[in-house]
């Protein structure tokens, strides 16, 4: 039971990181980046190349991965979102473009890295430690700690800084934000870069769990969207609530049914959550004042 709770929290943290990145982009552009799962996969691929293949020290490799993936995310913005202008609500072009970009990323990864999944060493070695009678990998603790740190960091950035203020302003209106002398384009770019950095970290954190391969995030990516929707799209607190809830429920369900149904159960949870509270846990049905 506690073992299930623990593994649920670990997977939930990863879903939460995916959902957070999806929300950051959604809040300033109003679009869902359907290539996000693949960006996480690219993060894992780059980490594998830097840390395992080239033998670069872990921390340096992590920083390099973050920078590379942030650049990929910015390029993604220029190729799939920018061409559709400021008023993205008026077109659905970005939907096909981001979906397509995801497929392109998967295929590039297949060509460059091959289709065979490769192992990635867990952070802190593979020796099990025992805490309160639960056996866990140091990696699991790292996942929880890093996710918590990212959550706190974003809470401060979004809630207390002028950048957070400007991000919130951009999500209300690009043109009014420009009237404040703030380049809404730069804010959107910053958000894409941040989503890339979170994706890179998420990629490194999942790699030891799923192995590194072009298809590694095919379902995890979808569950990330699910977590974002359960928590309330655009809400960063909701991302964590939704991610953890999904991860824990999924793991608890696994103690009752065979693991083969894992993904089916996860999506069932999503469907139930969405039908009970369509706006998400933290989503508010916002009424416009005339």
């Amino acid at each position: 039971m506690f073992q299930a709770l623990e593994s649920g929290m670990v997977m939930g943290s990863i879903y939460a990181l995916l959902a957070l990145a999806i929300n950051i982009i959604y809040s300033t552009t109003g679009i869902i980046n359907f290539a996000h799962g693949e960006i996480v996969m690219l993060g894992a691929m780059f980490a594998l190349t830097f840390i395992v293949t080239s033998g670069i020290p872990f921390l340096l490799g992590l920083i390099l991965t973050c920078i590379t993936v942030a650049i990929v995310a910015v390029i993604l913005y220029y190729c799939t979102v920018r061409p559709f202008g400021d008023k993205l609500g008026n077109s659905l072009g970005w939907l096909m473009a981001t979906l397509g970009a995801g497929i392109v990323f998967t295929n590039i990864a297949m060509l460059v890295f091959g289709t065979q999944p490769k192992a990635f060493p867990p952070i802190g070695g593979s020796e099990l430690v025992k805490i309160f009678g639960i056996k866990l990998l140091p990696h699991d603790i790292w996942v929880l700690v890093i996710t918590l740190l990212i959550a706190l960091f974003f809470n401060v950035v979004l809630g207390k800084t002028i950048l957070g203020n400007a991000i919130k302003a951009t999500s209300f209106s690009h043109s009014v934000t420009k009237l404040m002398g703030i380049s809404s384009q730069k804010i959107v770019l910053t958000c894409f870069a941040m989503s890339g950095i979170i994706a890179a970290i998420a990629g490194i954190l999942i790699s030891p769990i799923t192995f590194v391969g072009p298809q590694m995030t095919a379902t995890i990516g979808l569950k990330g969207f699910g977590a974002a929707i359960i928590g309330g799209v655009g809400n960063s607190k909701g991302a964590f609530a939704g991610g953890l809830l999904l991860g824990i429920l999924e793991a608890l369900a696994m103690t009752q049914v065979t693991p083969g149904y894992k993904d089916a159960i996860a999506f069932l949870i999503m469907i139930i959550a969405i039908s009970i509270k369509p706006e998400g846990i933290f989503g508010v049905a916002y009424e416009k004042k005339v």
């Binding site: 203020n165 209300f172 209106s173 934000t177 009237l179 002398g181 703030i182």
Partner: peptide
């Protein structure tokens, strides 16, 4: 050259103070 747009367009989810902070961004 600053503009106060039609329909007021204050940032509804920001506090009054935060709105002024954004106005003073420059």
């Amino acid at each position: 050259l600053a503009m106060c747009p039609e329909g007021r367009q204050v940032f509804p989810q920001h506090t009054v103070y935060e709105n002024l902070v954004l106005g003073g961004y420059l």
